[in-house]
Design a protein around this nucleic acid. Structure first.
Lengths: 214, 214
DNA sequence: GTCTATACTAGGATAGAC
DNA sequence: GTCTATCCTAGTATAGAC
């Protein structure tokens, strides 16, 4: 029962956002022209301005949507268990799944902060800080319970996040490693960095069992 | 005995490169205009073209010089010891010292690859690969000698490098941590990631001694 | 070595017709 | 909802005087 206009609007709106993500990711926000975005969608620049008031507006929506998804997935992961090891595993899975299932969007979110206007940037940074706080909480939990051994919690959090974001730079779908393999490898590195020796129930415990003699 | 012209040339040349580094680092290569560089140096755009044939040429020289320095410092560090633990410490110190003593240059080198022309980019990537190979060698040495325990050497190398580059994003001179403190903290995280338990002679050993009871 | 002046292209954004 | 046409600014780069 929706009108043709509504359907068109939703189509074009999403197509514009997708084109912007792709171009911002490969050429950067500053070097991407409003004309290129229009060309990619098959519209004129004038039509673009029917959907977004400015180029900056496109970036803002990409960032807010993406970080919002990441934050709520992260919150779910944190609520899924009170074991800090499970929390770290959950956050790793959320982060890497997000990065791997849409690497372009992840690159834009990670690299193009600076082009937002002051007030916009603040609201986006608040989202990012809330997300990073989840990691800080998980690390602090594990440290308090004696499961992790962390000398500098802030640096460790930053190192973990940078490590994960690194995947954004080289991950390609159809690459040599599956998402599951990547998550597994990052779990291993993360627990090494956190000096977490005690085995977990679940996949890691099963793995350990499979490798030990009967 | 040098002529006034020569002195001027060297001055302007360096001032132009410095201005370009600063602007490329804060606004990105694509968003930096040749006019802004000229303004910052106090010259006209026409004068800039006396020193560099294109804007791209400036970026190329910044990258080649910087990566050249990093590579030769890294090679010295590797030749300084055959103990993989010392090699990793040396590389960490080289990398973090470079990043901390000129964060703008480090950011440009790290982020603006894509704007080089095909052939230029290849020569620059060769430099970067040679530098990363130093890390790969140190990790492989430690693994072979049983000092490190690394499941995926490539991912571990990438994680270490990303971790260090992270410092580029938040390090500010006059910040809360001195360079020595940062290097120390990163040594700790790096050896955790490499699952290296055996203590080293040198600063870490001294530290451990200071903390243990007499 | 540095300037003035200028060529040419592309940038973001808007008015108003359909 | 999408178009044509256009405004104004800023981009890189060059020629030629001093």
């Amino acid at each position: 029962m929706e009108s043709g206009q509504t359907r068109k609007r939703e189509n074009s709106e999403q197509r514009i956002l997708d084109a912007a993500i792709s171009l911002f990711a490969t050429r950067g926000y500053a070097a991407t022209g409003i004309r290129q975005i229009a060309d990619k969608v098959g519209l004129t620049t004038a039509s673009l301005y029917y959907y977004a008031h400015t180029k900056d507006d496109l970036l803002l929506r990409i960032m807010r949507l993406g970080l919002g998804e990441l934050l709520s997935s992260g919150q779910e992961a944190m609520e899924g268990s009170s074991d800090p090891r499970e929390q770290i595993r959950g956050l790793l899975k959320v982060h890497l799944t997000f990065a791997a299932s849409n690497p372009e969007r992840a690159r834009v979110i990670d690299n193009e902060f600076q082009w937002l206007k002051e007030e916009e940037r603040e609201s986006v940074i608040a989202l990012r800080d809330a997300y990073e706080q989840l990691w800080a909480d998980a690390i602090a939990n594990g440290d308090r319970k004696g499961l992790f051994e962390v000398k500098n919690a802030s640096l460790t959090r930053l190192a973990l996040l940078e490590m994960c974001n690194g995947a954004t730079h080289w991950f390609r779908p159809n690459g040599p490693m599956s998402l599951e393999q990547i998550v597994g490898a990052f779990e291993d590195m993360a627990f090494a960095l956190l000096r977490c020796d005690e085995p977990l129930s679940g996949a890691s415990a099963l793995e350990a069992a499979a490798q030990s003699p009967q």
